[in-house]
Design a protein around this nucleic acid. Structure first.
Lengths: 280, 280
DNA sequence: ATCACTTACGGGTGACGTAAAAATC
DNA sequence: GATTTTTACGTCACCCGTAAGTGAT
């Protein structure tokens, strides 16, 4: 059998035209390369070069050999790349969600159920989530609507109620409930990665402005030191105690302010996640 | 890079299920194979096996690796096979003909023009000749009709006149000319590989019987020691003097008994054969 | 003289074999 | 006890580098 290093040497010679130049690029001595080419000819029992006294050129057979060398080396590279990627995917659980709320609940449990795996997560649009599930970029996705399909497992997970978060001095502070219409036109502090919530508040409060903060900490800081209203939810109020500071939280009354979440995964991989699903 | 021997080892393990069995078939010691598998994992920086105390099994990543190993080794085998075949074809000139006559003239000249190449020849049907030229099984073919095509070079080569060969005691021995109809119904000795001539004599003498001889020598022997008529041509009479022994040769009068031959080759390879074509 | 290739020779890596240990059946 | 895998250790092959030689530019 022809070992890979011989194919690499052949390919380098094909690329650089002389043994010396190719040897230079391969970081080996030139006589080594000379011997490699002779060895190749010996293994194949075929002449690959036209040899002049101080010049060596691939003949037609040699060019064919170089072509095969290229293909084989390409396939080896692909093998290494693909196997490493596959191994990564075997040890990584990627969860995509249409909103951060359900991740706050799910991620700790996932980390517990799959302690040997790296759990990563992302907020994405529902369309991208579904696409990503199909091409294995996501292992589990969380949608705000159920997804019915023969190859898909889908299970209702939890709900999330949106709250308005204001200082005690805000006019709405004494309300029991508040509607989007009540707050339209005001300026809000908002976390940048709220997923589908952004679509909802922009649609329901078309005249409002939203000061988006990339950093979750920044939202807390700004809310603490400014009078601007912001958002919260039953989930964030439970998981992030700090958000209560000096703020009054009033549930929105509109039906859109109550979201239902659905856990979705590929039916083939459902068994892998059963331990997690049962723990919910 | 992963050397080929590692892929061979992996594939053998995949096939035989245990290191010991695979090592046996590879004709290496079993610890060597154990180390090869560890080395593979090291190069890829990936776990390929589920290891129990005295058992080792490919995991999903390992199965994927074995699949790639199979593909790469298959491609290597194909490379070796193809290159050796190509090299052979580079040193072999294969001439196919619809009849043996023109080969008798052409082969010596081809051997002279291409002294560094092996010249081989075959008699075949015209359909097979044309197919064989297209897929490079033949480099040059000789047809009884011209072949017009944009990628094809075609040149009139020579003619061949068919003769009847009889003993002086045969009724036809005194004829100046003889027609196929005159001889229909008689028994002939015939060389088995006369190509398209067989179609012609069978068609023109539907009631004749032909005793086909695989061996060219056998035709001469039988003709010498029997009274049965046989065939000759202006070409065979010129190139094989022995055929004259005790025989009278009378030309057939039918138009079909005069064949015209055409040299045909691929237009791309015409330059390679120019020296031969000019020598004609 | 410089460049390009080949041959000759010595060195070090690493692939292999043998031996032995540990674990399972 | 038989089988299977892993670790340890010594050996030898072979791949590489250096040096030297030949021929061409």
């Amino acid at each position: 059998m022809i070992e890979i290093y011989l194919l690499e040497h052949l390919l380098a010679f094909n690329e650089y035209g002389t043994l010396s130049a190719a040897a230079e690029h391969l970081n080996i001595a030139q006589p080594s390369l000379s011997r490699s080419m002779q060895k190749l000819e010996g293994i194949l029992n075929v002449t690959l070069f036209e040899r002049q006294k101080n010049r060596i050129i691939l003949n037609e057979t040699g060019k064919l050999a170089a072509e095969y060398a290229r293909r084989i080396l390409d396939m080896e590279s692909e093998m290494e790349r693909h196997i490493r990627a596959f191994d990564r995917s075997q040890h990584t659980l990627t969860i995509g969600s249409c909103a951060p709320g359900p991740l706050m609940v799910l991620l700790p449990k996932a980390a517990g159920s799959f302690s040997d795996m790296t759990v990563s997560s992302a907020i994405d649009t529902e369309d991208n989530l579904i696409k990503g599930l199909r091409n294995s970029e996501y292992n589990i996705i969380i949608l705000s609507k159920p997804l019915e399909h023969e190859d898909i497992y889908c299970k209702k997970y939890c709900t999330e109620q949106l709250y308005l978060s204001v200082t005690p001095f805000h006019p709405a502070a004494s309300y029991q409930k508040v509607s989007f219409a009540d707050m339209d036109g005001q300026n809000f502090i908002m976390y940048a990665h709220v997923g589908f919530w952004e679509d909802i508040v922009r649609e329901k409060m078309p005249h409002a402005k939203f000061f988006k903060q990339e950093d979750m900490e920044a939202v807390g800081e700004l809310a603490h030191f400014s009078d601007l209203p912001s958002f919260a939810s039953d989930i964030t109020l439970k998981t992030m105690e700090s958000r209560h500071n000096n703020r009054i939280h009033i549930p929105f009354s509109d039906s859109e302010s109550l979201a239902a979440y659905y856990l979705v995964c590929d039916l083939r991989s459902k068994t892998k996640f059963n331990s997690l699903f049962r723990a919910l």
